[in-house]
Write a protein that binds this DNA or RNA. Structure first.
Lengths: 327, 327
DNA sequence: CTGAAAGCGCTTACAG
DNA sequence: CTGAAAGCGCTTACAG
């Protein structure tokens, strides 16, 4: 940045030693006497010396920096995972840089390329929007771990996701236990996670012997109409934001929650505590997922295999899911 | 990353030319014949060649990468500003890397250092939590622009913020126009922006000749008690999250909004549309603020002065602010 | 415990 | 239009 940024040559000159020695001293490497090291450190400090990350990386072949690519800066789900990764990275002495995919597969792919151009040691992709091909391609350049469910992970790519089947099952079972029989599913996109939740919704409804048809749709209006028609008394929404929209639409329509309509979300984001009624939601252990992703990445860096880990969600019961209205 | 990542030497060998020529061709620099350039490009593509950002930066003294340090990954306000910066950067052909300060001045300072260690060309700090000293110190190493109100900006640091006085004035005047006279302020932290909003709240109340005392507090319970006592009929909250918490507490206490209590927030985040009633809020032009920050930074990179720009907020009226209850 | 040399992948004058 | 050389800030063997 500034043109007179001090380098190890400046430090070496000021200390009257060779630059190799400065390099060793600064990195706490063996082969420098304690007194010399202390003197060099002090002089470096005085000069405001700062190691130039990429010059070091270029020479050492390792940057100690990992890249995190996240799909959506606005999603509390994604940002919590990032925080989990960051904490684990801090603990491991790794620096992190983030990049934002803006919810667009093209931008994601481009940013992933940029990140790898920077020669980070590896990258963690917090998004389910990148195709298995794009991930596998990136993995040829360097270690890649994805957090988010994808179909057919290449065996060069590490992965972490939550067990959507279990999450959906917990939600539906909870509503059924409250006496609901006419449960609908407010479905998400075509992403694998959404599909898994949908399939598990069906499976659970069937397993619980709840009467078909099992309404599944992706728009709020249809659900509201169904509630009005008495065909739906509870909804399992594929995520908290959708659940919040449904809640708003219900209140707008004069439908009381949970009195007339029980609602369960997914992700257990901050939203759950801000809304009224407070939202019952399936929690994914996001920090843990971030930590696991970093662990897989460091193993990968150490030459290990690309693991896939699936973590267990749990249900957090709040006010939006209530007993079935007695007709 | 991968050890057999192709370099310009590989491309040069494959093309049968010198590596200097490859460098020129790849950067679209003059001095290479069109045919040769095309041939080199094709070969580079074939080999999967990718320029090594930091080797380039090290040699060229310029990385074309700028760093963005944001205070809080979970704040829609901050992330919107980041998006504004990113768009402007994309348009300017600059790469961005993000770093997360985790709402902690110490972490912010550390991350700012990391970012500068990376030799980015400059950094934009989206946070008001970093001290003027810390910013000025960083500005000695390279261009720094801050988005967020800070006291006494050093003249080496660029800055962008919104006019909090105008914003607070808009909010209070709106409530007064609806007939409210007993307006309270749910105040924020000690940050300059919060202080400015508080001061402007007082000034506006006085200017409008509204009866003292003008309740100002930073906890929800006090406000609720005051509403119950009939001493407060409307609240100007220092941001949307606080407004949301107040809304929740009011509903929990059986206080209807806006019937018994009018509420106005600040920031106009996504929350405003998810809550019921929908939240009236003061909008800061966040994308524009991000763009301006980038413009200031690029001017700084070009040797220009460190400008400070203050943008105008506007009021977005929704359902949470209603007429004063007739007693 | 210390120094001189080569090299990481690139760019930039400088010659031709 | 093209090539040989030096150098960006650092690390890593290799000698002493």
């Amino acid at each position: 940045m500034s043109s007179h940024r001090p380098t190890i040559v400046d430090v070496a000159a000021a200390a009257g030693v060779s630059k190799s020695l400065v390099s060793l001293a600064l990195r706490d490497a063996p082969g420098v006497s304690a007194t010399t090291r202390a003197r060099i450190m002090a002089i470096a400090d005085d000069l405001g010396y700062r190691s130039h990350t990429w010059a070091r990386a270029l020479a050492a072949g390792r940057s100690q920096v990992i890249g995190i690519l996240l799909n959506d800066l606005h999603s509390a789900y994604h940002t919590d995972i990032v925080e989990g990764i960051e904490r684990a990275a801090d603990a491991a002495g790794l620096t992190t840089v983030l990049s934002h995919g803006q919810r667009d597969p093209k931008v994601l792919a481009q940013r992933l390329g940029h990140l790898q151009d920077l020669s980070v040691d590896g990258v963690i992709v917090v998004s389910a929007l990148l195709s298995p091909d794009a991930l596998a391609h990136a993995a040829q350049r360097g270690p890649v771990v994805v957090v988010g469910r994808t179909t057919q992970v290449a065996d060069t790519v590490g992965a972490v996701w939550n067990n959507d089947e279990v999450g959906a099952h917990l939600a539906v079972e909870h509503l059924a236990r409250l006496g609901h029989t006419r449960i609908a599913h407010l479905a998400g996109s075509h992403r694998p996670a959404s599909q898994a939740r949908r399939a598990a919704f069906h499976a659970t409804m069937t397993a619980l012997d709840l009467p078909a048809p099992h309404l599944v749709c992706d728009d709020t209006d249809t659900v509201i109409a169904s509630v009005r028609a008495g065909a739906t008394t509870a909804v399992f929404a594929s995520n908290d934001t959708r659940a919040a929209r449904l809640l708003g639409a219900a209140l707008d329509a004069g439908i009381s929650v949970p009195g007339d309509l029980g609602v369960v979300g997914y992700d257990n984001t901050e939203l759950t505590e801000l809304l009224r009624p407070r939202l019952t939601s399936v929690d994914q252990p996001r920090h843990e997922m971030g930590q696991r992703a970093l662990a897989i990445l460091t193993d990968l860096l150490g030459g290990g295999p690309a693991r896939v880990e699936v973590v267990a969600p749990r249900l957090i019961v709040r006010d939006s899911s209530g007993p079935s209205p007695t007709p």
